[in-house]
Design a protein around this nucleic acid. Sequence first.
DNA 1: ACCATTATTGACAATAATGTCGATAAGGTG
DNA 2: CACCTTATCGACATTATTGTCAATAATGGT
Lengths: 196, 196
Amino acid sequence: MQAKALILDAAQKRLDAVGPEGLKVAEIANIAGVTHSTVLHHFGSAEGLRASLAEKMVEKLLGDILEVLDTGSIVTSDHKVLFRVFAVLSDEGNARLLAWTMLKGLELKEGQDTLAQLFEQLAQGVKVAILAANEGDITEATALRHAKYTIFQVALTAIGDGVAGDYISKLLGLEPVEAKAEFRDWFAERLLSSGN
Amino acid sequence: MQAKALILDAAQKRLDAVGPEGLKVAEIANIAGVTHSTVLHHFGSAEGLRASLAEKMVEKLLGDILEVLDTGSIVTSDHKVLFRVFAVLSDEGNARLLAWTMLKGLELKEGQDTLAQLFEQLAQGVKVAILAANEGDITEATALRHAKYTIFQVALTAIGDGVAGDYISKLLGLEPVEAKAEFRDWFAERLLSSGN
DNA sequence: ACCATTATTGACAATAATGTCGATAAGGTG
DNA sequence: CACCTTATCGACATTATTGTCAATAATGGT
């Protein structure tokens, strides 16, 4: 079962390097050091390979986020969890893969349920934080809705950042390195501070 | 010069329907009611067609946003401009096209300068609004930085929404139609209200 | 009306990508 | 070891996609 992993790694590498269009079976096989027949053997088809890749991505994403959630409560003064979630989504090509998967209209059947659970968990956590911050001024239903919007917002921003962050920040004349970190600070600050 | 437009329309339609992978010359030609030879004639190559498509998108995006900007000041109590910008970016497949273009690593040579100017204009407008909202409490440089972050935020959210909005909102259990509009309200409210 | 340019087409060629098959090798299990 | 399963390969087949070309039709200017 080593070849399968090698092939997936090669595919991921290729995807990061040249984008979805670079995902040619022969090329990937070449990088992995096998023939294209071997790739087909393991994944059934080119489509199967892409599906496996998407699935692997979702698993990694889930694993990373769950690991973060394990380390503490969702909303903290230093926004640690938020940052990590953001980082996991927008860095390491996750967002690009996610975006590509969606643009392709691929199903994420496997991970979907787990993902939904994760979002539910996140929503509950944020809801509690919102309720705590607005004692009595807010109903639980409203808090939940705002929690969901908050998560929605983080997810969209992270995905947008992963897909187009570099390009847009260049257009805006933002210095790449510092701006990235600084924007996240700014973003987290506003996200959690202002009245809900 | 009608066929060229017909073909581009067909390509756009196809892109919206099936994603970037559906962009096959023959298929597009078929929709446009011409032969694939005609497509090649007008665009030189399949790649040329895709490039034209990307360019058309940027132009439309620019036109739409500039039109909005013409109608009034950037920051208003009803967030009209913000909404329209958001809508232009995230609806009508613009974001998908943009994301696809970026995932493909295509250059947006033509529109780039104009886009940069547009962002500059937006940044100045938002800066003024921020300065007005925080009289004296903030330096001009800080206001500009926050303005850029605000725009960055809107752009990323809109792109993320266009790419993955439906999917994520489904995961969160948000009702599609109302949630979309409501989120935008929530988003705009928070974006412009809280202290900068 | 004539000519040059451009548009359009169908048949065909070239290429690229995926998929199939049978042979061979490797690995594990009784 | 004999046997079965799985992995790997190379050669070939199929299909999908793009690209070429020469013929014909349309268009527009003089």
